[in-house]
Write a protein that binds this DNA or RNA. Structure first.
Length: 568
RNA sequence: GUCCCUGUAGCUCAAUGGACAGAGCAGGACUCUUCUAAGGUCUUGAUGGGGGUUCGAUUCCCUCCAGGGACACCA
């Protein structure tokens, strides 16, 4: 049990003893006062007031009077209708340090997920298309979810599902075959070529709808793996996969298994044949569907009138393949909110098939531009590389202006860390349920509630520790009297709860907010409390505090997938 | 038309049904002969409208308004 939980338990015990017999307060009743000056933990007396039919403030006063200093509690006081306790910084702080030392890298982790295998599907990119900023949210939210679930003890299998055989691919291949045959595309132009071809295909099809028949023909050939398009598909697919791997690698995504749409087609067809026999899949208006009207989900369209498979059909094959490969007890699909209906249909269809695993849609709102949604077919997207380079450039300017004497290598290391921290944090700091309206000016800002601010805090900590040299840190808290010191100790203790809650809800913004609070409190401490100026117990205890804050900051940022640097 | 999400300060966002609704940016005023000023301090400024439930509502319910999304051949 973490120290924070011990403190809460002690507080509850004290309340229970002070309250009339039979009253049993629960852990969830406890709150955090809005201002630490009012105390560290709070117990609201409203429920008690109601059952006793008395004024909550009076009850708070009575209860507080009965609670004396004991264990981790230094003092109890009534503040209006609340009983607040101030924790004994010495006992509490030392318990927290003890725990941090004992658990080291595992501080904050837990084992609720022990013995449970869980699959997280994310990073579902399309071949033959660019990676744009909308995808980044998926990549970062997914990776954070993976990290957090691992930290709470789950056996997590992160997988990506690449759509290398959708209609978009057929359009591209058709366009290349028809209008760009034998064109020599240089290595460095491959991705740009694919992008242009895709836009060209969409424009042509819009202008001349009759051409759709040709695309359908190509699509059918690709699905059946025959025809002269296959070689072209294979070649360009490889270009794309190379590119995607490079991006994933650059973004440090940990993906155990890559699934491809092209490899689930045979399985999907077999499944559908079975479902037709069972009467689950029926023909309707020339297409093949699963009727989900009873579940209020309309119809799940699996096979088009032209005989080609739809995405939702192939997801059935994928689900079965995942089951065969890993048999996870629970599957999480990290997909944007716009597809929640399609996923509900998928889950409902799997259920009809007798598939009993727990399925969960981790949904997030999409990223849009100020002028509206992005669309690759129109070409109005902000490409990942463009944004990245913009960020790198900005980071380079800032870093160079601050450190004229640094070597190029050193600068580049910092530049990379700053740019990627900014990118990742900007996508994770906001609630998953809220749309992100992308704003370049904001994205390249490194001040305030941003990744670089957190990096900067960490760099200052490292600098302090470096300057302290061989001076000993002492993991006690007897001389820590400044309010920010008390706050910092409390935040360190709270970290495990935050990690737990963030993993439960899979809402990385919660952890991002917490880390920012921690950094901000540290910055206040840093401005107000000198650490290295005088020797003595103050120095060694403050050093220990500084080091502990650095540790939690580093571990928390690591869960969000953000790399740290010691100087910037 | 049906369903889902969102509406909080000039802008972008916080707030397990609780204590004076918090941050960041932008604006204004300070602050580097103290450890990194990518920092700190002070300051201006907000719950879309109307009902209801509750001791207490940004949060829950109803309704209206506004924006976004989904709803059979895209993914």
């Amino acid at each position: 049990m973490y120290t924070i939980q011990k403190a809460k338990t002690e507080f509850l015990q004290a309340i229970k003893q002070a309250a009339p017999a039979g009253f049993i307060p629960a852990l969830e009743d406890l709150e955090t006062p809005p201002d630490q000056k009012m105390g560290d933990l709070a117990f609201p007396c409203f429920d008690l007031a109601k059952s006793l039919k008395r004024n909550p403030a009076e009850i708070a006063t009575e209860l507080a009077a009965k609670i004396g200093p004991k264990g981790l509690i230094a003092e109890a006081k009534a503040v209006g209708p609340y009983v607040n306790v101030v924790l004994n910084l010495k006992a509490f702080g030392e318990a927290v340090y003890g725990e941090m030392k004992e658990l080291a890298q595992e501080y904050g982790m837990s084992d609720v997920g022990k013995d449970k295998r869980l699959m997280v599907e994310f990073a579902n990119l399309n071949s033959h298309k660019d990676v744009h900023i909308g995808h980044l949210r998926n990549l970062f939210v997914g990776q954070a979810a993976v990290n957090l679930l691992k930290a709470t003890g789950y056996d997590v299998i992160p997988v990506a599902y690449i759509n290398d055989l959708g209609l978009h691919v057929a359009k591209s291949v058709w366009c290349m075959k028809t209008y760009h045959k034998d064109e020599d595309v240089k290595l460095e132009n491959r991705i740009a070529f694919l992008r242009d071809v895709y836009i060209e295909a969409n424009t042509l099809l819009e202008e001349q709808p009759a051409l759709v028949a040709q695309v359908t023909e190509t699509f059918r050939h690709l699905e059946e793996q025959r025809g002269d398009e296959i070689a072209l598909w294979k070649e360009t697919r490889a270009w794309s996969i190379d590119y995607l791997k490079q991006v994933y690698n650059e973004l440090d995504l940990t993906i155990d298994h890559w699934y491809f749409e092209s490899e689930v087609i045979a399985k999907t067809k077999k499944i559908i044949e079975g479902l037709i026999k069972q009467g689950i899949v029926k023909q309707s208006e020339g297409a093949w569907i699963v009727d989900l009207k009873e579940q209020d989900l309309g119809v799940n369209l699996l096979i088009k009138t032209d005989g080609t498979l739809l995405y939702n059909a192939k997801d059935l094959g994928l689900a079965m393949k995942k089951e065969d490969d890993y048999h996870p007890t629970r599957s999480i699909y990290v997909v944007d909110e716009r597809q929640s209906h399609a996923l509900k249909q998928l889950f409902a269809t799997l259920k009809l098939m007798g598939f009993e695993r727990e399925l969960q849609h981790l949904s997030y709102e999409f990223v849009t531009l100020e002028g509206g949604a992005m669309a690759a077919r129109k070409g109005n997207v902000i490409r990942y590389e463009d944004l990245r380079d913009e960020l790198l450039g900005e980071a380079r300017r800032e870093t160079k202006s601050r450190h004229e004497d640094w070597s190029k290598k050193k600068i580049e290391k910092v530049v990379r860390a700053v740019a990627f921290a900014a990118l990742r944090f900007s996508m994770l700091k906001q609630d998953n349920g809220k749309k992100i309206v992308f704003n370049l000016k904001e994205a390249v800002s490194f001040e305030g509630f941003t990744g670089p601010y957190l990096l900067y805090t960490y760099a200052r900590i490292q600098s302090l520790l470096k300057k302290a040299g061989r001076k000993k840190a002492k993991a006690t808290t007897a001389t820590l009297t400044h309010p920010t010191e008390h706050q910092l100790v409390f935040l360190l203790a709270k970290y495990p709860e935050i990690v737990f809650d963030t993993a439960q809800t899979l809402a990385p913004s919660m952890l991002a907010q917490f880390l920012f609070d921690l950094a901000k409190t540290f910055a206040e401490f840093y401005a107000q409390v000198p650490v290295l100026t005088k020797e003595g117990p103050d120095l060694s205890e403050r050093l220990a505090l500084v080091r502990a804050v650095g540790t939690v900051l580093a571990q928390g940022l690591e869960l969000l997938g953000i790399d740290l640097i010691d100087e910037m």
